[in-house]
Computed example of a mutant assay.
Amino acid sequence: MTGRVSPAWVRALLAQPWVGPLVRLALVSAYLIGGIDKALHFHAAVAEQAHFGLHPAALWAALAVAVEIAGSLCVVLRRFTWLGAGGLGMLTVVAMRVANDFWHQSGVARFMALNSFFEHLGLIAALVLVTLLGDAQAIAAENRH
């Protein structure tokens, strides 16, 4: 084995029909829960957007709700994955810029913001990967027909 291919037992586990949907749901779970929570507590979502200097806050809150819920459903249901993942990725870029501005902080606050910044960067990378994987699977399916 060259180290490029997973062991057979890993491939067998990953081939289970429940693994893909569960992993996609896990990937977007924070967005989906966040979008639902913002929708149910819209006044708090507006206050959050205002706190981070995003105006008009109500518009930003509504956009966040729409992108978090619709984008998550696109990824989970594998429909327009590129659009859902792209929207979630862009929302995450905005969040990184306004909420994780480690370059303006010091001490423990800087440490926490820096960690969060790179955690969010990892989420964006995972959203890109889920889009690449979905495209590869769709192309492979087209080629089989």
Score class of each variant (00 low, 15 high):
residue 87 G to V: 06
residue 19 V to E: 08
residue 144 R to M: 11
residue 83 L to M: 12
residue 7 P to T: 11
residue 7 P to S: 13
residue 145 H to D: 11
residue 66 A to C: 11
residue 51 H to P: 03
residue 58 A to K: 05
residue 67 V to F: 00
residue 43 H to G: 15
residue 99 A to N: 07
residue 22 L to V: 14
residue 95 A to E: 00
residue 124 I to Y: 02
residue 144 R to V: 12
residue 70 A to F: 04
residue 100 N to W: 06
residue 108 V to N: 10
residue 102 F to N: 09
residue 97 R to D: 09
residue 97 R to F: 12
residue 55 H to C: 06
residue 30 A to D: 04
residue 118 F to N: 05
residue 37 D to P: 01
residue 16 Q to C: 08
residue 74 C to Y: 01
residue 30 A to W: 00
residue 10 V to S: 09
residue 18 W to V: 15
residue 140 A to V: 07
residue 119 E to S: 06
residue 57 A to F: 02
residue 76 V to W: 02
residue 129 L to S: 07
residue 104 H to Y: 07
residue 46 V to P: 03
residue 87 G to D: 05
residue 99 A to D: 06
residue 106 S to T: 14
residue 80 F to Y: 15
residue 106 S to R: 09
residue 94 V to A: 10
residue 1 M to P: 07
residue 121 L to M: 14
residue 50 A to N: 06
residue 98 V to C: 02
residue 108 V to A: 14
residue 41 H to L: 08
residue 128 V to N: 03
residue 110 R to C: 11
residue 95 A to S: 06
residue 105 Q to A: 14
residue 50 A to I: 07
residue 35 G to Q: 03
residue 102 F to T: 10
residue 39 A to P: 03
residue 65 V to R: 04
residue 48 E to T: 12
residue 20 G to D: 14
residue 123 L to Q: 02
residue 73 L to F: 09
residue 43 H to V: 12
residue 30 A to C: 05
residue 52 F to I: 07
residue 73 L to V: 15
residue 122 G to R: 00
residue 80 F to Q: 15
residue 52 F to Q: 05
residue 108 V to W: 05
residue 56 P to C: 08
residue 115 N to V: 08
residue 103 W to F: 06
residue 87 G to A: 09
residue 77 L to K: 06
residue 64 A to C: 06
residue 47 A to T: 11
residue 132 L to T: 07
residue 32 L to I: 08
residue 6 S to W: 15
residue 89 G to K: 01
residue 101 D to C: 01
residue 37 D to H: 06
residue 83 L to H: 03
residue 36 I to H: 02
residue 120 H to I: 04
residue 29 S to I: 14
residue 10 V to E: 09
residue 72 S to M: 08
residue 62 A to S: 10
residue 60 W to F: 15
residue 45 A to E: 04
residue 49 Q to T: 10
residue 7 P to L: 13
residue 86 G to H: 00
residue 125 A to I: 08
residue 91 L to Y: 01
residue 84 G to L: 10
residue 23 V to F: 08
residue 20 G to P: 02
residue 127 L to R: 01
residue 1 M to T: 13
residue 111 F to T: 14
residue 61 A to I: 09
residue 24 R to A: 13
residue 124 I to Q: 01
residue 67 V to G: 02
residue 106 S to W: 03
residue 115 N to K: 09
residue 141 A to D: 10
residue 59 L to F: 09
residue 128 V to Y: 00
residue 142 E to K: 10
residue 107 G to R: 08
residue 55 H to Y: 12
residue 87 G to I: 05
residue 75 V to R: 02
residue 134 G to N: 13
residue 97 R to H: 13
residue 59 L to A: 15
residue 141 A to E: 12
residue 91 L to E: 00
residue 32 L to Q: 05
residue 8 A to T: 11
residue 113 A to M: 11
residue 92 T to W: 01
residue 56 P to D: 07
residue 120 H to D: 07
residue 2 T to A: 13
residue 89 G to I: 07
residue 93 V to Y: 00
residue 115 N to Q: 15
residue 76 V to K: 02
residue 143 N to C: 11
residue 128 V to E: 01
residue 122 G to C: 03
residue 78 R to A: 15
residue 20 G to L: 13
residue 50 A to H: 04
residue 74 C to K: 07
residue 111 F to Y: 13
residue 27 L to H: 01
residue 77 L to I: 06
residue 121 L to D: 01
residue 12 A to I: 08
residue 19 V to G: 06
